[in-house]
Design a binder for these strands. Structure first.
Length: 405
RNA sequence: GCGUCGGUCGGAUAGCGGCUAUUCCAGGAGACUGUAAAUCUCCCGCCCAUUGGGCAUCAGUGGUUCGAGUCCACUCCGGCGCA
């Protein structure tokens, strides 16, 4: 059975786990470390595939849960798979729906998200048994997770096998095992329970994946297993040992983090995961976090931040994020970021962008997304180049001193 | 001139006797990290303050009432109709 993807390391950082490499997929090459743009419903919101390409993106990640509901994975398969369906010719990935166990479950209707800032220690106590919660749209059972569709209320049961079936139908180059992303507010006991479940699901995902590949004459996508374990060192390490010991093609590092826990978790995990397989830090993408990840041996990132921020007018610049809707930019005829080489910075003024958002013109979201994606993708590319050139630390210091002044 | 309907925070509105005057837009700011997201939150009469507090306010002036944006009278302004 030939490997669906091939990962090779080109250069490593001195004394740190960071590395620059290449992932070859049937639909093209990904130069790592790389930022993966998120196109949940087979669309990077507000952008055409031509515009996605213009941002320098090499790979797009779509979502199992969303595409299963609409238009349906069987239908996508009938259309020739994700790439053909959305007219994106480069590499693709699909997330397993595991994150929706969290975002539609424990995090539903709460102020908890992918990265939380915990200011009150009482927030770390489990909220599991509290009454008066909004009813969750996802409930975790023994065998899988029941989801109530957020748009028509219909009930769906997703098991690891079901998630893998859906992802094989969607036809991405890289798919993920079905996992449970836990909230950092859960107790140790719950984290451990959830982790054991994620491990069982990982094994089932892998077994089912392999049987589908065998049934298909040895051809199929690459499968990444996902490490969980919350903020606990023992659990993170146990998870890295267990998941890293299974025959996955690469690994995802998952979880909802308190900001200060992210770095330690990544370090614990990457010390253990096999060096010769790619590692994907799921859902992370702010500049500071990208430096942290790259330095600590992460090869792939995906994040909604550039596109979500871009649609709202929060735009990245070399001297920090700005909200270009604000009154101070109304008459600012300068470029968004004079140091940025994207088409938006070359052709449009801050005043024009400000106007577009205020006027609720769709073009605002499009231009903002093009710029933000370019900015983040290009930032990671520069990190890669800095690793190859042997000046990663200098680049990091220089960038961050201006960016987070 | 007569009749009639109306004048509510920058605009548009709700409120038709009961204590904090509604909502939308505009305006000001903030948030967003495997997308329930072209979204969401807060502020938006004035003055202090750290939580909070004080004072105003529904065109104007009187009145009825325990209590009035709301009822009555007159005045001013506007729309419409009739002369």
């Amino acid at each position: 059975m030939s490997k669906p993807i091939k990962f090779s390391i080109k250069k490593e950082l001195d004394g740190k786990p960071g590395r620059a490499g290449v992932i070859e997929t049937p639909h093209g090459t990904i130069h790592t470390p790389a930022f993966v743009s998120v196109g949940t419903k087979a669309s990077v919101k507000a952008l055409t595939p031509e515009q996605i390409l213009e941002t320098g993106a090499e790979v797009v990640l779509a979502n199992t849960y969303h595409l299963y509901l609409e238009p349906g994975d069987e239908r996508v398969k009938k259309f020739g798979g994700l790439q053909k369906f959305m007219n994106w010719h480069g590499p693709t990935m699909t997330d397993s729906g595991g994150f929706q166990v969290f975002s539609l479950g424990a995090a539903y209707g709460k102020e908890i998200s992918k990265v939380v800032s915990i200011t009150d220690p009482s927030q770390l106590l489990s909220e599991r048994s509290l009454d008066g919660e909004e009813p969750r749209l996802a409930k975790i059972g023994q065998d899988g997770v029941s989801f109530r569709s957020h748009h028509d209320g219909t009930l769906h049961y997703i098991t690891p096998e079901k998630s893998i079936d859906i992802q094989h139908n969607l036809g991405a180059d890289v798919i993920f095992a079905f996992d449970e992303c836990t909230s950092p507010t859960e107790s140790y006991q719950y984290q451990e329970e959830a982790l054991e479940r994620t491990h069982r699901w990982a094994k089932r995902s892998l077994d089912h994946h392999n049987s589908l590949i065998r049934a298909n004459g040895g051809i199929g996508p690459a499968l990444f297993g996902i490490v969980q374990g919350g903020r606990e060192e023992a659990l993170r390490k146990r998870s890295a040992e267990f998941i890293g010991g299974l025959d996955f093609d690469g690994f995802g590092i998952g979880g909802s983090f308190a900001k200060e826990d992210m770095e330690t978790a990544v370090k614990w995990v990457n010390e253990i995961l096999p060096k010769d397989k790619p590692r994907h830090l799921l859902g992370i993408g702010e500049p500071e976090d990208l430096f942290m990840g790259v330095e600590n041996g992460v090869d792939l990132f995906d994040c909604v931040a550039p596109t979500r921020n871009g649609r709202g007018g929060t735009l990245y610049t070399s001297s920090g994020k700005i909200n270009v809707r604000n009154a101070e930019y109304r008459e600012d005829t300068g470029p968004l970021d004079p140091e940025c080489g994207c088409s938006v910075c070359k052709n449009y003024s801050r005043a024009y962008l400000c106007h577009l958002y205020r006027a609720h013109e769709m073009l605002g979201g499009t231009l903002g997304s093009i710029h933000n994606l370019y900015f983040i993708i290009n930032l990671v590319k520069q990190m890669r180049q800095a690793i190859l050139d042997g000046n990663f630390q200098e680049f990091k210091t220089k960038f961050l001193s201006k960016y987070s002044k």
